[in-house]
Write a protein that binds this DNA or RNA. Structure first.
Lengths: 206, 206
DNA sequence: AACAGATTGGACTGTCAAGTCCAATCTCGT
DNA sequence: ACGAGATTGGACTTGACAGTCCAATCTGTT
């Protein structure tokens, strides 16, 4: 699955450059919309380099991109995502997502969701890789909600895993509609509904 | 935008055959994953026919497919969708969606959502066409919820349009996750959460 | 029947993309 | 410094795809 691991620091730089640039291109134009020549042009590399580091060709490169894209999303949100354990934090998270969409002019949607939608049907390996990403994401949210429950902010019968899954679904659907309508309203409404649902499990009425 | 309108019944049959078969192919393999030669093979038609009925080439064919796909979704759900105005009807709708996913082995997701995700970024016309589809869909649900409110089943401060939008977002996100994980759980959880949110606006507690 | 226009078959072109190959150059350990 | 192996440049092959073109056939009308 993993291709040629670069042996020298120069090789590592090149490989990383390729993956990063491809991730950008895939976010902008989609996976099938980006050719290896596009990648070549964007990175100033040659065909042989692409196949040297990714002997499996485009499939393998896309797998690396999926992992990188996941890493990026989590890196960007880590401070938020790791402390998603209070009502204020949830609201901040909601606002952050919406602000980002506004900044992107509602384009692009979720990098992970888009790749999943595009590739799930025709590449089983990528599909399960992306399913894994979603699971990780869910577990971040779940952890925060579990902390809130342990702290007595959520009722004991609230199920953090289920609530987290519902929240991610709302997020993904909201992003898809926002991307399609070029309006922030869907993501706002979707997240508000999801958070209201979570709040309906609050220990004390809010 | 509309291509050559067929003049004879033979022409209409051919054009319809092309659109229907393409819709199937696009659902299975995605829009960029279906070539005009695939369409040719599936329909037993020739290149000249494709361009005779769709002078704009693939773009125009895809636009026709998007409209057809929307029509299909609504046709299949019309009886349900037009009477989505009671708690029982909402539950039946939920169960129907889930049963369909199970039957499809969790593959494919929503035909409209998938096309939107794939094409929104690189074809503005298609994007707004699909946004229109979502809006129509939303209005069906909205109408049912408004009826429930008028009938006194929903509180007066419940906003049918917003609730409908949140529901569609949950549906789309749930379908995406179901398609990615190959499990019905995401769509179940997403729809349950959406309906619980709607129920939280019930006039009398349920 | 005969004509006009609709419809059809399928060969052909040009472009682009994936993937192969090999020779040249660089890097690192010794 | 120097050799082995890593890295790189870029030409080349092969195939797929969108789109063009024109001659042949069919259909509805008079």
């Amino acid at each position: 699955m993993d291709g040629n691991v670069p042996m020298t620091s120069r090789g590592r730089r090149t490989r990383a450059k390729i993956v990063d640039a491809t991730a950008d291109l895939v976010f902008e134009r989609g996976a099938t919309g980006t050719s290896l020549d596009d990648v070549r042009a964007a990175t100033g590399t040659s065909k042989s380099q692409l196949f040297h580091y990714f002997p499996g060709g485009k499939r393998e490169l896309l797998a690396a991109v999926a992992e990188r894209q996941t890493e990026r999303v989590f890196d960007a949100q880590r401070p938020t995502l790791e402390k998603l354990d209070s009502w204020a934090a949830l609201r901040r998270w909601r606002n952050g997502v919406i602000a980002l969409q506004r900044q992107l002019h509602c384009a692009g949607g979720c990098p992970i969701g888009s790749m999943a939608n595009e590739l799930a049907e025709h590449d089983p390996q990528l599909r399960s890789l992306l399913a894994e990403s979603f699971a990780t994401w869910q577990s971040y949210i779940e952890r925060g909600l579990a902390a809130m429950r342990d702290r007595g902010q959520l009722r004991r019968d609230a199920d953090p895993a289920t609530l987290a899954l519902a929240t991610i679904a709302a997020l993904q659907g909201g992003l898809l509609l926002t991307k399609t309508t070029r309006t922030t309203r869907p993501i706002e409404v979707a997240l508000d509904a999801a958070l209201a649902h979570v709040r309906s499990f609050a220990a004390s009425p809010r």
